[in-house]
């Protein structure tokens, strides 16, 4: 049983912000379905447990110590792809 159709592949690629061409979509289609067939076992297994386990850490009430770390503007901009000396710059899509 196929879990994902071709459109689903494009949809999931969009969620993951990946560009797929026809060839990629074809390749991934099969691979993703293989993996998802395995994942189906999660849905079908019968379990009693109703609580979720986020991780084995049950740490509670941890608060930061208030001291500050700081990076200079130059260091930040030096690592960015495009800047104008003050801001990091990208091309717009929305105008809000």
């Amino acid at each position: 049983m196929e879990m994902l159709n071709k459109n689903d592949v494009y949809h999931v690629a969009n969620l993951a912000k990946l560009a797929l061409d026809e060839e990629d979509a074809e390749k991934y289609h099969g691979q993703l379905n293989d993996i998802l067939t395995e994942i189906e076992k999660i849905e079908t297994v019968d379990i009693k447990e109703q609580d979720i386990m986020i991780s084995s850490s049950n740490n509670t009430n941890r608060f930061s110590n208030g001291s500050t770390t700081h990076i200079s503007k130059d260091e930040v901009l030096a690592r960015a792809s495009r800047t104008n000396g003050d801001f990091i710059v990208v091309s717009s899509v929305f105008n809000d």
């Binding site: 994902l4 592949v9 999931v12 690629a13 969620l15 993951a16 990946l18 991934y28 691979q31 993703l32 993996i35 998802l36 994942i39």
Partner: peptide, 10 residues
């Protein structure tokens, strides 16, 4: 890429 897509899907 494959893993990120699966992760987004689930």
């Amino acid at each position: 890429k494959r893993r990120i897509m699966i992760g987004s899907y689930v």
